[in-house]
Amino acid sequence: MTDTHAGADPDADGVEPLAPRQLGAYFALMEAVSLLQHGVEQQLRAEGDLSYVQFQLLARLTDAGGPLTMTQLADGVVYSRSGLTYQAGLLEKAGLISRGTFPEDERAILVTITDKGAALVRRLLPGHVEVVRRLLFDALADDDLHHLGDIMSRVRDHMRAQPPRSAAPRKRRQAR
């Protein structure tokens, strides 16, 4: 069921504004995500000197159980190619990942978590879980958790049905 303005007037661009409940849900979601990400980022910086994105990359590599391409990582963490290349460079310099060419396609770069990187994820995980539990899950009853998981899975799947960011053509720089 959608919450729409019956007969709401479009703005100057012809776009119908969000209904009050839609706007409220959007702002609550964005604030909750920002607060959760801030809490997680603080824990990761304090305990492991990692950014949230760096931890996401290491966690994805750990979860994958093997190497991933840079494109798979970019799509998985929803991060720009250039930003990912920069972050991967920092992680490689710290000895947490290694990068190499893909035998079947030399254009693709394979990323592998090192033993040092896997050990860091294992060390950070208890604190990470504590922060997530305290900030997110402690506020929810079991039924709430079921509904939240269902809702967010549907929203994520809807968003993921769009072509991945890696499939978008790169923007060309204009000549000056």
Results as ranks from 00 to 15, higher is better:
Gln72Ala: 12
Ile113Ser: 04
Asp63Tyr: 15
Ala64Met: 15
Leu91Val: 08
Thr71Glu: 14
Gly83Met: 08
Arg81Asn: 14
Phe55Met: 07
Ala59Phe: 15
Ala32Met: 08
Tyr86Pro: 00
Ala46Phe: 11
Leu29Ala: 10
Leu90Gly: 01
Leu84Pro: 03
Ala32Gln: 02
Lys93His: 11
Gln43Trp: 07
Pro103Trp: 03
Tyr86Leu: 09
Arg81Glu: 14
Met30Val: 04
Glu106Phe: 06
Lys116Trp: 06
Leu73Arg: 08
Glu92Ala: 15
Gly89Ser: 09
Ser34Phe: 00
Arg45Met: 14
Thr114Lys: 10
Arg81Tyr: 15
Ser34Cys: 05
Val78Pro: 05
Phe27Gly: 05
Gly39Ser: 12
Ser98His: 00
Val78Leu: 13
Met70Leu: 15
Ile113Gln: 04
Val53Lys: 07
Phe27Cys: 11
Ser51Pro: 04
Val78Phe: 12
Leu61Trp: 04
His38Val: 03
Gly76Ser: 09
Leu96Val: 00
Gln43Tyr: 08
Thr71His: 12
Leu96Lys: 05
Ser34Leu: 02
Ala28Ile: 02
Thr114Arg: 04
Ser98Val: 01
Arg99Ala: 01
His38Pro: 04
Glu104Leu: 15
Leu84Cys: 06
Glu31Tyr: 10
Glu104Phe: 14
Asp49Gln: 13
Gly100Asp: 12
Phe102Val: 04
Ala88Glu: 06
Glu41Pro: 02
Gly76Ile: 06
Gly100Val: 08
Ala64Gln: 15
Arg81His: 15
Tyr52Ile: 00
Glu106Cys: 04
Leu84Glu: 04
Gln37Tyr: 10
Val77Ile: 10
Ser98Thr: 00
Leu58His: 01
Met70Pro: 00
Asp105Ile: 01
Ser82Gln: 12
Leu29Thr: 03
Ser80Cys: 05
Thr101Pro: 01
Asp75Gly: 07
Gly48Asn: 10
Gly39Pro: 01
Val40His: 09
Leu84Ala: 05
Leu110Arg: 11
Gly100Lys: 15
Asp115Ala: 11
Val33Glu: 05
Ala74Glu: 02
Tyr26Cys: 01
Leu73Val: 10
Gly117Lys: 02
Ala64Gly: 14
Ala108Ile: 10
Phe55Cys: 02
Gln72Lys: 13
Met30Cys: 04
Tyr86Arg: 14
Ser34Gln: 06
Gln72Pro: 07
Ser34His: 08
Ser34Lys: 02
His38Gly: 00
Thr101Ile: 11
Ser98Pro: 00
Lys116Ser: 09
Arg60Val: 07
Asp105Met: 08
Asp49Asn: 12
Thr62Cys: 07
Arg107Ala: 14
Ala46Cys: 11
Leu29Phe: 05
Pro67Arg: 09
Ser34Thr: 03
Gln72Thr: 11
Pro103Leu: 08
Glu47Leu: 13
Glu104Arg: 15
Leu35Gly: 11
Leu73Ser: 06
Tyr79Pro: 00
Gln56Thr: 09
Gln87Asp: 08
Val53Ile: 13
Leu96Ser: 00
Val33Leu: 09
Tyr26Glu: 01
Val77Met: 03
Ile97Trp: 02
